[in-house]
């Protein structure tokens, strides 16, 4: 038992050390966002002599519209994508995990196949398509695909989680006369909270960070999102305001970090703590 007690501080020390190494770049970015812009690359390391907050105010207003617009746009987009993914992917996943329908293996194969083609050859025909319906410069080309379960990653993730749930639960429900909609809504969904939380967190973060599709579809600066705006600070052909860039990078991480902090609480409330059956 004494070795146990000793092991805990050692464990913590190890975790803290690993944590520092992992966080070093993040800490450096925060430190640099508080330095005067022209000193960033001339004084390496984490130590700052004096605090300079002007990168934050300058960065916020460096582009027109100001940074608040981009945060708001990203928030709207993220919300749409989360709702879309949660509803459509969980439905599709239920079908693949619990229903025995004809051609299931084929459909599943096709679903996985859709994530194997690189985006760069899909984007041009897809842009042509959406441009013809007049959806360019709206959030529709970014949200509608999510509502239509095109994110096979999450379908597959949820399939794996549902298959991990004891089958006796829905067998029992079926004997009680429950149909699939009720089994799905009242038994499976509550039990797969960790998977839903994971989907929410990931959709949030990936949408928040996704640059390429947002760059292509959003053309008007009033519609720009955070990642598109953040890159507008950086142009290799001219001098870059790295101070503003880092400051706004820090600002843009805060929402996803908060989302993660809140979301991870639901990760813990799986079957393990609610007691299972």
């Amino acid at each position: 038992m004494t070795t146990r007690r000793l092991a805990t501080p050692v464990k913590h020390l190890g975790l803290v050390l690993i944590g520092f190494v992992m966080l070093y770049p993040v800490l450096w970015m925060i430190a640099s966002s508080l330095r005067p812009g022209d000193e960033i690359f001339r004084s390496p390391g984490l130590i700052i002599d004096s605090l300079h907050a002007e990168n934050y105010t300058e960065g916020w207003y460096a582009l027109s519209p100001s940074f608040g617009t981009y945060l708001l746009n990203s928030a709207v987009l993220v919300l749409g994508c989360i709702v879309g993914n949660l509803v459509s992917c969980s439905m599709a996943a239920y079908a693949f995990a619990r229903l025995n329908f004809s051609g299931k293996r084929w459909w599943f194969g096709i679903m996985l196949g859709t994530i194997m083609l690189p985006i760069h050859v899909i984007i041009v025909p897809q842009y042509v398509l959406f441009s013809n319906i007049g959806w360019v410069n709206t959030f529709l080309p970014l949200i509608v695909p999510k509502i239509l379960a095109t994110d096979a990653f999450f379908v597959f993730l949820m399939v794996q989680f549902i298959r991990g749930l004891p089958k006796e639960l829905d067998e029992a429900a079926r004997i009680d006369g429950c149909g699939h909609p009720r089994i799905f809504a009242q038994i499976i969904l509550p039990l797969m909270k960790p998977a839903l939380a994971t989907t929410t967190i990931f959709t949030f973060i990936w949408t928040w960070n996704d640059f390429f599709t947002q760059l292509i579809y959003l053309t008007d600066p009033d519609m720009y999102t955070v990642p598109v705006a953040l890159r507008s600070f950086v142009d290799s052909t001219v001098a870059t305001s790295w101070g503003s860039q880092f400051a706004m990078s820090v600002v843009s991480i805060i929402p996803i970090f908060l989302a993660f902090l809140i979301g991870q609480r639901y990760l813990v409330k799986g079957i393990a703590t609610t007691g299972g059956k």
Binding site: L63, I123, V124, Y127, F211, F212, L215, I216, T219, D220, P221, V228, R231, S232, F233, V234, D235, S236, T237
Partner: peptide, 14 residues
């Protein structure tokens, strides 16, 4: 419509 160098050319081509 402002972009940075790399994104500019991707977007223009598309």
């Amino acid at each position: 419509e402002f972009k940075e160098w790399n994104g500019y050319w991707d977007s223009l081509a598309t």
